[in-house]
Design a protein around this nucleic acid. Sequence first.
DNA 1: TTGACGAATGATAGCGCTAACACTTAAAAC
DNA 2: GTTTTAAGTGTTAGCGCTATCATTCGTCAA
Lengths: 329, 329
Amino acid sequence: MSAITVSRVLRTPELVSEPVRLRVMEAVARLGYVPDPAARVLASAKSDVLGILIPSVTNSVFADVLRGIYERVEGSPFHVQLGNTRYSILEEERLLGVFSRQRPAGLIVTGLDQSARSVALLRQVDCPIVQIMEIGDEPIDMMVGFSHRDAGRAATRHLRDRGYRRIAFLGARMDPRTRRRLEGYGEVMKEAGLFDERLIVTTQRASTVTLGCELLSELLSRTLEVDAVFCNNDDLAIGVLFECQRRRISVPDDFGICGFNDLEMMAVANPPLTSVRTNRLEMGRKAIELLIARIAGEPIGAPVVDLGFEVVARRSTAGPLARDARPST
Amino acid sequence: MSAITVSRVLRTPELVSEPVRLRVMEAVARLGYVPDPAARVLASAKSDVLGILIPSVTNSVFADVLRGIYERVEGSPFHVQLGNTRYSILEEERLLGVFSRQRPAGLIVTGLDQSARSVALLRQVDCPIVQIMEIGDEPIDMMVGFSHRDAGRAATRHLRDRGYRRIAFLGARMDPRTRRRLEGYGEVMKEAGLFDERLIVTTQRASTVTLGCELLSELLSRTLEVDAVFCNNDDLAIGVLFECQRRRISVPDDFGICGFNDLEMMAVANPPLTSVRTNRLEMGRKAIELLIARIAGEPIGAPVVDLGFEVVARRSTAGPLARDARPST
DNA sequence: TTGACGAATGATAGCGCTAACACTTAAAAC
DNA sequence: GTTTTAAGTGTTAGCGCTATCATTCGTCAA
């Protein structure tokens, strides 16, 4: 029996007759034979690696996306290779270089703001590519995400509709997506004639609960005329809530709080915190589904998938006039 | 100029004369040549892959360890290949099989409780191995972690020393490390003559803040005689705090709360929550340092590194008698 | 002068697999 | 009965590197 027959049994068993196939499979099982992936890649010029580039491994948003990714890769013949760009465009370029040499079967990159060199590299690489987290008009190949600008608009409108007027924006780790949320906030505030630069407090530091406390303190030291805050993510919102508790600021009566991402803890805080639900798990799943479909040559629908978002209204934004009307829990 | 000379310039430049070396390097830069990693692995029978097996990518504990890992791998010639075992011993076996075929340069696995087959595989693999998170007496190769049993003992002793008597244990996702913390708790409680089975509430569900609320409710429905709780991690502790706020249970006066891992939010909660600080970042860093040192053939110190832990006492465990004596913040 | 030696470079083979094509056999079509 | 076709299996070559050994050349000791 020749080597190529074994190779065929392992890769395309339907091309091998049943008796031969069974004998080979028996021998493979008995000897514990497993093909050498390096030799495979070298001979076939394709690997089974799906390269994933994300800016952070500790941010729970990406952790959820990753979980969706692993969930769908599971059971497929592919493997995940993770690259951590740490929010650096140069590191992203470097990692793309490393990944592209490995002839990946597919690539996932975060966001729309790759450097020109990264984009050039991505256009050369001969594999499907999904940009995740955001959507835009010019996908390199495919996209799965939602509009952060629209989400920022929706959250701000929600606070405005609930009767808040002096609505602040707290932002940490101002990456492109955070900036677009801020953009949406600014638009709505201007449209409502409520815009005031002093209401915007941002920092490049990474988002933490502690930072939420600090940013609220910074905000309150600038102006006492604030009656709500849109936090660019939930860590900050929890920090703001803790700080309000300490300062005996009543939420939502005197102060509304809206977070972003709707982490599970938002629903059980006191009061429960309003947030913008994003489909992070689904984002990871869908990205892998698109990659695998394209690798298999199957047709995909639209190359840009909008997973949307949803403002989940909870008591923390019941409104400044809600003191008497609000539910007991 | 022959191919082997180029290969030498790239791998062992000190063996090539300066003029030749410079010419080759110039050409490499000009042509943008980069060697094919698959061919390299095939020819040299060694890869630059460090395989990492962790049970979860969403658990922030492992996210921190990962960050330490990426930090140290950065700048080295190695790459991280991440495997997610999802707390399944079988999945761990499978992934070890996949990894070992890639002739990894090093391996990191989580915990001490690998299956017999996994251990056999690990002993066969020709690369350094680090077991992380825990320490024990029989390392497969090397270990970096701390004693969860001792940490459980320390936290329970702390609650006891602060004057709490009816100290409960809340545990989620009862993995081997959680069980050893429970073991430590049980020992101290028995030594103090305080042990009561009804005070132990555990579940296999993954740990969340919401689950902390639920487990506390479950506990209080069993017995009202509880004056403190040791949560097997910080998510639960935060949930317990929120639930106490809702039930108007005064922390720490009527109820003490101690978490585990000391996530950053613990320090800014109301009241600040006591927790057991663990060196997660350092765990990742140290594991990679050990691997790289061994790959380079450098001597390492002891093969088992105890990174320890520390009970960080905050107001949430000031004690039932502290009502008058406690600080104002 | 000669041989030994080390430094620098090259020639050869092969890592373990798969692509591409070649061949064999039996069934189907003419 | 011959040709065509398809299914099943084998042969050959080569993927892009590096291990190993061979060669060249200059230097130095005997």
